[in-house]
Design a protein around this nucleic acid. Structure first.
Lengths: 222, 222
DNA sequence: ATCGCAACTGAACGCATGTTCAATATGCTA
DNA sequence: TAGCATATTGAACATGCGTTCAGTTGCGAT
């Protein structure tokens, strides 16, 4: 039996309980092929009968929720363990480059595409981090201040993950488990234009921004 | 029987053939609920038996391909009919605001999320338009030039659609058929930070861009 | 040693799906 | 009007799914 000291919500990473094996197989398969993989497929991958999955997790939905919790917790751990705060892309690429944590990235991306609570927590978390990180940059003088720091942090987060997600959807890797390679391809395609946009912007003058600010103050009646 | 003058690929918009009714119902349901809606559901919506759908389209996949062609063609028409060239967001919002064309937008967005050929054509098309539109802006002096105009156009397109897609996934509208409302919500949330980013950029100096350019010329060995 | 409880199996069930097919209705053509 | 091709139906089939459950194994406490 499982030690009473670690309950189901614990990060029993290095154990080989059937329950943990199922959870790991589910994270990997959900992350690689989406949430339509069958319970039987997961059971096969974990070397276990289908019935056992529902014995441990109640239902397929229960399994998904357990995976959600596990992935979110492990990513939080990973983020806190990083000595220096990093951008979301850097962190994900670092995680995707390590065999042990790569499936977590795949799962998180699939989750973002599917929506739901984990996706929201995920974005909230990264947006909060971005806000902090940006605030430090502004204080240090390396980042320009914004009229709405919170909105900017969220926008940059959604925009960054959205672009990554769509790019991976349009250019699916031949090997679906090589998320690091796929991410590197994305960064190679988008690195220059994004850095350029962040450095110089796009528009030559402030007229559009000023017009938008006027529009916000006095919107046209719909 | 269908007039011999318009074959299956034609834009027989205003006819009420069972085939056209099925196609319209499929576009609407696929766009609203994704591509897992059942053939039977579509048949019900079109007031038709399930068998007829496969008689006309061969398979569910055939129906999807017919919808893909139809939607892409209608969006192209819409774009050409617009007097002035517009940004992708403007065009989509305009289409989403008209009852007749709103389902097309929903379908296109679902298609982008699912990947596949239509998604690629769609992005290619909009990226090419963006490149043209940006080139005019550069010539007119309203847009700053880029080191790689093609890559920038593609980046801005992927980034824009990706952000929209992810935002709609995270904030699904109560009424899934009100795409225009959902888009307006998105623009309200992201309008200021995106305009600000496009106007002033994010970074206070060129150091990161210069570092990236050096990195591209002489990448570290992997 | 044995009792008891949890882990675990695998066959079975019910359901929804995409698809097939024989039968019928319909409308154009000769 | 007769005939034929096409449109259309709806029942049936095969498959894969999530889930249930009666039964078996294995282990820790008494």
């Amino acid at each position: 039996m499982r030690s009473v000291a670690m309950d189901a919500a614990d990060a029993d990473r290095s154990d080989f309980t059937a329950r943990a094996r199922v959870r790991d197989a589910a994270v990997e398969l959900f992350g690689r092929s989406g949430f339509n993989v069958s319970v039987r497929t997961i059971a096969d991958a974990a070397g276990v009968s289908p019935g056992l999955i529902l014995h441990h997790f109640g239902s397929k939905q229960g399994l998904r929720e357990a995976c959600d919790d596990y992935v979110l917790q492990r990513i939080r751990e990973y983020k806190e363990r990083a000595v220096r705060p990093a951008s979301a892309n850097e962190l994900l690429l670092a995680m995707a480059s390590v065999d042990e944590s790569a499936p977590l990235v795949g799962y998180a991306l699939q989750s973002l595409q599917a929506g739901g609570d984990l996706a929201r927590s995920f974005i909230d978390h990264f947006a909060a981090d971005a806000e902090e990180w940006i605030a430090e940059g502004v204080k240090a003088g390396t980042i320009l201040p914004s009229l709405d720091e919170k909105a900017r942090a969220r926008y940059l987060t959604v925009q960054g993950f959205g672009a990554l997600l769509l790019d991976l959807t349009l250019n699916p890797p031949e090997d679906p488990s090589d998320i690091a390679g796929a991410m590197r391809g994305y960064l190679a395609r988008m690195g220059l234009p994004s850095t350029e946009l962040f450095t110089q912007g796009l528009l030559a003058d402030r007229s559009m921004l000023d017009a938008y600010l006027l529009y916000v103050v006095d919107p046209p009646q719909p």
